Computed example of a mutant assay.
Amino acid sequence: MSRKLTHLVTMLTYNKTDIHPLTFILIGIPGLEAAHVYVSIPFCMGYILALLGNCSILLIIKTDPSLHEPMFLFLCMLAVADLVVCTAAVPKLLSLFWFHDGEIPLEACLTQVFLIHSCSTMESGFLVGMAFDRYVAICNPLRHSAILTHTITGGMGLAVVLRGVALLSPHPFLLRWLPYCRTNIISHTYCEFMALIKIACAETSIQRAYSLSVAFLTGGVDFVLIICSYVLILNTVFRLPSKDARLKTLGTCVSHACVILVFYTPAFFSFLTHRFGHKVAPHVHILVANMYLLVPPVVDPIIYGVRTKKIRDRFFTLFRFSKSLN
């Protein structure tokens, strides 16, 4: 441990005068360093559940032709984005917590920034696609299959991916061009855009403005579109003649609504805390930022597994089949 501490001090001394360090140091959760091993337990369990849950969703939907519907195709896209986001952050986090391995090369750090932020943006876009599916299914059910064909669904998914790549690709370059002559220590568990901006020793108003604009054009606009779709859905539902029909129709939206809450609640908290929550304790902010990355990938498959009978039945069929093989 003393050798690691000596190496850390050496790195700090070296990078005090280094304009473009080749390595950054992640320190984890400030104030909770002594509890990192204990904190790692729920993160490790959550990551395992995220891998199992999302891979199961992908396998079930791929092998069951009756699930090749727009909602479940968007769910597949969401599952892939969830897997990329948590895999980009959690393995390094566990390495930091378990082995005190906080060093991350510059290129790996910038790659992590791009993957986490771009795929988080894609998650938001896929939720909009799912909201559009619910809107068409409820407000224009007779034309649902004609409007949301596989080609249209695939095109919407591709548009979401291209939007995430196009808008978030500049982030690593904006960060790479900044000088980091103060320190190379990042007070976080992963490389986050704003965490790197804070340790730069240059004017960063342009980078901050671009990040804010991207957040508004993606998460902000997406959230408004989802709200608008649900206003139209509720308007249609409340015009249905019977209470049973209203409840049954709303029941088809419950899973999606829960996923929206799970995704946007920590996302907005983290976003607002970065810019306005100067009095929020750093460890609280970082824990919420990690929840934003890990909780949706863990919870999304559970929500759809519990709420969707086709997925639930197919899961138990696969489980019984694998059990019989053993």
Rank of each mutant, 00 (worst) to 15 (best):
S270N: 13
K309E: 08
C228P: 02
S120A: 07
L115M: 15
A200G: 10
G46E: 00
C191H: 03
I303W: 00
S324M: 05
I152L: 15
R246C: 14
Y135Q: 06
L225I: 15
T13H: 09
V128E: 06
K309H: 05
V136W: 05
L175Y: 04
I186A: 01
V259K: 03
H100N: 10
K198T: 12
A146D: 14
V262R: 02
K309G: 01
D133H: 10
L225S: 11
N184H: 01
V161W: 05
S270P: 07
L59C: 05
L325M: 05
K310N: 06
L325Y: 06
F114V: 11
V161L: 13
S66W: 01
L94W: 00
R312W: 05
T317E: 06
V262S: 02
D133F: 02
V299F: 00
I57C: 02
E33I: 06
V85C: 13
T236V: 08
T153C: 14
L75I: 06
V299T: 02
K4F: 00
R320I: 05
N15Q: 10
Y264D: 04
G31M: 05
R134V: 05
I286Y: 03
F114H: 07
T249S: 14
I286L: 03
L73E: 09
S229C: 15
L325H: 03
P30T: 05
V39R: 02
E103C: 03
L287Q: 11
Y264N: 04
D244H: 04
T273Y: 13
S255A: 15
K198F: 06
L272M: 15
T121A: 08
N290C: 12
R320N: 06
I116L: 11
V284Y: 10
S66T: 08
E123L: 12
A79E: 07
P170V: 13
M77A: 15
L58K: 00
I199S: 02
A200M: 13
R143L: 11
I104L: 04
L217T: 09
G31W: 11
R307F: 01
T87S: 15
